[in-house]
């Protein structure tokens, strides 16, 4: 006999649910709860939308040309005579 989850317990587990990191039995309990709880469904939807927004907020950042040039010049100056694997 499984105990019914409260909204608070659902809330605590929602990220792990979104990431599919929960035991299948707990997922089933969450889904059963969602059948009869519109606020938890709305909360889940908005949390999922938050994750998608964050995921796509990171436009691929192309390194600006001057940053690329500076970086390679810096590394040539600092590394070339050292050889790899030498902490200084």
């Amino acid at each position: 006999m499984t105990r019914k989850l409260s909204c608070r317990e659902i809330l605590d587990n929602l990220s792990a649910y979104v990431d599919a990191e929960l035991d299948p039995s707990l997922c089933e309990e969450i889904e059963a709860h969602m059948q009869g709880c519109n606020p938890c469904v709305a909360f889940l939807n908005t949390l999922k939308k938050t994750v998608v927004l964050v995921r796509y907020s990171g436009e691929p950042e192309q390194v600006p040309q001057e940053v690329h040039i500076d970086l390679h010049r810096f590394l040539r100056d600092r590394c070339k005579d050292d050889g790899p694997g030498k902490e200084s």
Binding site: G58, V63, P64, V67, D70, L71, F74, L75, R78, C79, D82, P84, G85, K86, E87, S88
Partner: peptide
């Protein structure tokens, strides 16, 4: 994204790859 400004990101980029080179082993 971590530091929020291009100047710090530029410096940290250099420090990062210098560390990577020195710790390649």
């Amino acid at each position: 994204r971590l530091v929020g400004n291009p100047e710090d990101a530029r410096e940290l980029l250099q420090e990062t790859y210098l560390s990577a080179y020195r710790n390649l082993d």
